[in-house]
Amino acid sequence: MRLVPRPLGVLALAFLSIAVSLALVLPVGVLIYWLINGLRANADFPALAPAVRHSVEMALAGAAITVALAFPVAILSARYGGLLARAAEQAATSPMPSPVSLSRLRSSSSASAMPPASTRPSGCSCLPT
């Protein structure tokens, strides 16, 4: 029996290939862009080493915690299935906020963190007075 690719499958594969390529290429491109700008501005990169190390340590710790919490749910749903596994999966993914709620939270928290207009410098047009 020979599998024949369907047109919709080829389109879906092309779309997913483009999406994955952009997801990998864009962040690396942005990092290279800012690295070049930092080199042009004579940035003091050795002074940034502690901040970079701290960021990497926190990212690794967050990844380890995520894997440790997700692994039992994945094993339960892959090996056993059923109602309990489905409930565990839904309970694990239900606290995930949507991107819309995250952007609203970010904008509201950044606006509340701004100092009052009377204490801002006169040239600051961050928020309308």
Rank of each mutant, 00 (worst) to 15 (best):
P5T: 02
L102C: 13
A63T: 12
G29L: 05
A91N: 03
G82Y: 05
A64D: 08
V10I: 14
V73L: 00
P27S: 06
M114T: 09
R53V: 10
A92F: 01
S98C: 06
A61D: 08
S125N: 10
L69V: 11
S103H: 04
A92T: 02
I18T: 15
P97N: 04
L26A: 14
V30N: 12
P97F: 03
S118T: 01
A78F: 12
P121R: 05
L60V: 12
L76Q: 03
V73M: 07
S110Y: 04
I36F: 10
R86P: 07
A68K: 03
A51N: 15
V56E: 03
R106M: 13
L102D: 02
M96D: 03
F71A: 15
A113N: 06
A88C: 02
R6M: 05
V100Y: 09
P95C: 00
G62Y: 02
G38T: 03
S101A: 12
L26Y: 14
G29S: 09
H54N: 14
L76I: 05
T129P: 11
L35R: 12
A85L: 02
V30K: 13
A78T: 03
N42R: 08
L35W: 14
P99G: 01
A78G: 07
S103K: 04
A64W: 09
F15M: 10
M1P: 05
A49P: 00
L24P: 02
S107F: 06
V73I: 08
S125D: 07
C124D: 08
G62R: 09
L105K: 08
A12K: 13
V4A: 10
L127H: 05
S103G: 08
L83K: 13
I18W: 12
T66E: 04
R86W: 00
A51F: 14
G82W: 00
S17H: 11
S101C: 07
R120L: 02
M96C: 00
A51R: 15
L48M: 14
A92K: 02
F15Y: 10
T119K: 07
P121K: 00
V73K: 02
M58W: 15
P97L: 07
P50L: 03
P27C: 01
A92L: 08
N37E: 12
L83E: 14
R104S: 09
P99M: 02
L35F: 15
A70N: 03
P46H: 04
T129M: 10
V28C: 11
A87F: 06
A113F: 00
P128L: 01
L13A: 14
A68M: 06
A68D: 04
L84V: 11
S77A: 04
A111V: 05
A43C: 12
L39C: 14
P121Y: 02
A51G: 15
G123E: 00
R2L: 09
F15I: 10
G29Y: 07
V56L: 08
A51V: 14
A68Y: 07
